[in-house]
Design a binder for these strands. Structure first.
Length: 383
DNA sequence: CCTCCACAGGAAGCGCAGGAGT
DNA sequence: ACTCCTGCGCTTCCTGTGGAGG
């Protein structure tokens, strides 16, 4: 509170911030614009598929173009609207549709209706108010992998039942393979046009960071070297702009808390560690009870134990503390979730005559886990 | 070459919560 | 009050499998 703030506009570093200029994406902007242009003449436009790795600007560019489109359309008195749903964050078909409904100004209870009922309401709204809808499905590969292509099929052929309105779809995915799961009819309808977002090069990433840093920080409250370092650290694998921006923002926060006059390289290095640690703490804290119990069993056992040994330890802990225990099937499920979170490392090995099992090792320090779990009301009293 | 251990992981379904319509 | 809907966490039942020892 004592020092002056280093930020002019902190929001400019948030990953969902959409700047007025998106450098190095002019080609993609025009492509999307051209694909959607027919809407401005009141005619149909193609469905669209957009690919690119995380942090390549897919979402930002799409939203940017659609906002412009909405503006233009409303100036011309056309009823064009866009609906957005991130299918991974929504999580279920129902919640995807309820996102869509909300974008149309329809309020839908978060549970209770049949999916077909929600879909029906959406269609009748589109129809009765003669809307042209562009539906953006972000991380569409999640939807397809977990629920198949039924919903997409319904959506692609919804137009037949919409004499007054029109619905077109933009799918965004960071994975090309998901097309294999699609019915050929859905695929051909969905991918009338495809646009690829290549990763940013190290140079481009640096330029983007400079731009944003200029918007976010006061003049001379950040050094050039620290911006370069952010770009280098975050972009080393594949030009992920989101990670680079996050890093820059956290570096600023670190510097501010220290009361430093400007953001320097040492702050960036601290920020890298801080991001990693925050991610861990959050992952640990939000674990459900039995996942915590399991992780505790694994951590306290130490190196490389088999599934059977871990399950024994886990059931002992449960019995001793009067907690009802889960079946082994469920436990394997939880174990693979812990694995996915990077909290444990598993290795499938075969001991021939003596069976096949997973060797399970913790990837987190016992002390660290203890610190976080101490605050849990149930497990805190056990450890 | 076959067997068989000690699990992995797929499929189905159950019970509950939370809600709508009637 | 009753029926019907979905999501979620979980169980039950099941089939699949790499390789040491027979």
């Amino acid at each position: 509170m004592s020092g002056r703030s280093l930020y002019k506009n902190r929001d400019a570093l948030r990953s969902d911030y959409i700047p007025s200029k998106l450098p190095f994406r002019e080609k993609q902007i025009t492509s999307i614009g051209e694909a959607l242009a027919p809407l401005l003449h009141g005619s149909k436009c193609s469905n669209l598929l957009i690919y690119g790795k995380t942090g390549t600007g897919k979402t930002a560019v799409t939203k940017y173009v659609l906002m412009r489109l909405e503006e233009k359309a409303s100036k011309q008195g056309l009823k064009v609207k866009f609906a957005y749903s991130n299918t991974r964050i929504a999580g279920t078909e129902y919640r995807i549709l309820s996102d869509v409904a909300q974008s149309l100004g329809l309020s839908i209870p978060f549970t209770g209706l049949a999916i077909s009922e929600v879909f029906g309401r959406i269609k009748s709204t589109i129809n009765s108010s003669e809307l042209k809808i562009v539906l953006v499905m972000d991380e569409i590969d999640f939807l397809v992998r977990n629920y198949g292509d039924d919903l997409l099929y319904e959506l692609t052929r919804a137009n037949e039942q919409l004499p007054q309105g029109y619905l077109s779809i933009i799918g965004i995915s960071n994975d090309l393979k998901f097309k294999e799961f699609l019915d050929p009819r859905v695929l051909s309808s969905l991918s009338e046009e495809e646009i690829v977002f290549p990763p940013y090069t190290a140079e481009e990433l640096r330029a983007i960071l400079y731009d944003r840093a200029k918007m976010a920080f006061f003049e001379d409250s950040i050094t050039e070297a620290s911006i370069n370092l952010c770009a280098a650290l975050a972009g080393s694998e594949h030009g992920d702009a989101r990670r680079a921006l996050d890093l820059l923002r956290v570096s600023g926060e670190v510097a501010e808390r220290e009361g430093a006059a400007k953001v320097e390289e040492k702050h960036v290095r601290i920020a890298v560690q801080k991001i990693e640690q925050d991610r861990m703490v959050e992952a640990l804290r939000s674990l459900p009870l039995h996942a915590k119990l399991l992780l505790w069993s694994i951590v306290s056992l130490g190196e490389a134990n088999s599934t059977g040994e871990v399950y024994d330890r886990y059931s002992n802990i449960c019995r001793k503390n009067g907690i009802e225990l889960l079946t082994q099937r469920r436990v394997t499920m939880l174990l693979s979730e812990l694995d996915l979170l990077g909290l444990i490392a598993t290795n499938l090995i075969s001991k021939g005559r003596y069976g096949r099992t997973k060797k399970i090792s913790p990837s987190v320090q016992l002390q660290f886990v203890r610190e976080v779990f101490k605050e849990d009301p149930v497990i805190g009293s056990i450890i």
